[in-house]
Structures are given as C-alpha cells and as structure tokens.
Nucleic acid binder design. Sequence first.
DNA 1: TTAAGTGTTGCTCT
DNA 2: AAGAGCAACACTTA
Length: 266
Amino acid sequence: MPELPDVEAYRRRLQAHGLNKTIGKVAVTDKRILDHVSPAAFARTLEGRRLTTAKRHGKHLLAKLDKGGWLTVHFGMTGDLQFHQDPEPAPPYTCVRLDFPGGAHLSYINRRKLGRVGLADDFESFIVHEQLGPDALDRSFDVAALKKALGGTKRGIKAALMDQSVLAGIGNIFADEILFQARIDPRKPVPRLDAARLERLHAATRRVLQEAVRRGAGSETFLERLPSSWLLPQRRKGGQCPRGHGALKTFTQGARTGYYCPTCQH
DNA sequence: TTAAGTGTTGCTCT
DNA sequence: AAGAGCAACACTTA
C-alpha cells in the first residue's frame, strides 16, 4: 500500500505513540525482512533504547534512537505498522515486534516481504546511500527543484515521477492522480513538457500529496473521503473520467497498470 | 483450476 | 549508460 501519504500517516502514529518508551524485548519473527543486520545485532541495538523522533523521506520511515543511530523502516507493497496496547497474539505475517513497558507493542507486518527493516548511523547518509531524490513534500521542493530532479531524462513523465532517485515518495497510484490533476499524458516524454505543464505538475504533486495526508491516506475509508474530482475512486476497470469524458484508459509499463483520461491528459 | 494481477524495488539485459 | 523487463514474494481475483 504505502506511498508517501501512507508512510506519513505511519510516521505520525509513531510520533504520537511510540516515542520515549524504553524498548524491552525485540522479537524478529522473520529475519528475511532485516536489511543487512542479524536478528541478534538488531535486537541488541534496540533493546533498552528509546525512540526520540520519527522522520520520513519519501516512502522511508526512520526513528532516531536515544543513544545515536536510527531504526529504518520500508513497507514495500504490503507492509504495515500496528500499535497495540494489550498483550495479544502477533498478527499473521508479523516480521518484527518491539515490546514496550505495560504490554504495549509495535508490530511490523509484511505479507510479501517486499520491504525492509534495518539500522542506519545517520539520516542524511541513509538518504544518500539509498540514492533517494528530494522528498516530494519537502518545503524546498519548488518548481526549480522539480526541473532539476527531472534533469535530462528522456523517459515518459510517469516513469520518471515514480523513480525514487529522481523524486522520493510517489508510486503507481499517486502518479496517476497527480498526472490526471495536472492534465498531463503519463507517457509524455519529459523533454516535451513545456513550462506550463511543469508548473501544473509541481502544483498537482504538492496538492495531491498534502490532500491525501489530510484526508487520511492509508485508512480504510480513504477513497470515500476524496472529492469526486479525483481520479483515485475511479481507478479501476470501468472507471469514468471525473471530468465527464467517459471511460478511463489503461496502459501497462513494466508490469504496472496505469489509468488516465485520453481526452483531458496531453 | 490455473493463471494472471498486485500500491515496490533491484538486478539483468539491451 | 539510460531505460525496459522481470524476479522476488504470497496472496487474491478472473
């Protein structure tokens, strides 16, 4: 599930419920999710520590440890982070669980194991090491930064938008919404985007991601809470253009399906 | 039933 | 050397 707005929701939950509690036992129940660290080393690093702040860059969530270093979390397609107050059986597909005093615990769950949990020394070095572009919601990400990020690529704009080394945070779903709102054809080569389109693309990127966060991305009722002018609720077989141009079209690029309106996106 | 599909990323091949 | 395609994974849907 998680793209930038969903990860931001996780960040806020972690910030609200997971900070400044001493971590007791750390249980790694599926070590395949650990990123270049053994279960023993991972547990040893976290046990007895407290998380002091939660930050996000693109789709990555990082929590700072009180004695230095960071816990890193990536969700892949099926990752989830759940807090529970009471001792209870771990949800299926739990990979890592941190116990807090009084029975509260934090579970990282991932069905398809396409995410990673790990450790990093430093926030900025982690971003560099992961080759992440600027965060799409960072305050400094203006039109000039967008142009710079897109650089000299000749790819289609949707592929470029989803490339985390170009711009961090956007995946298949929100790329479709952003390009619909900016009225740009997802396959349009980046060099053929004029100034007006770049301006619209930048504005739509920020507006869509901010609105998604505000309207509770990641919650079950997210789609129902979106305005009828959005593409997402129609993003399915038989979906209609919210601007009244009839059926949406689909296209495939690299095993991902995209939805767009051929009438209003150019 | 079998096969294709999936909100991600990373590796391989061109 | 940038960019396309598929593998990884474990399910769900057609």
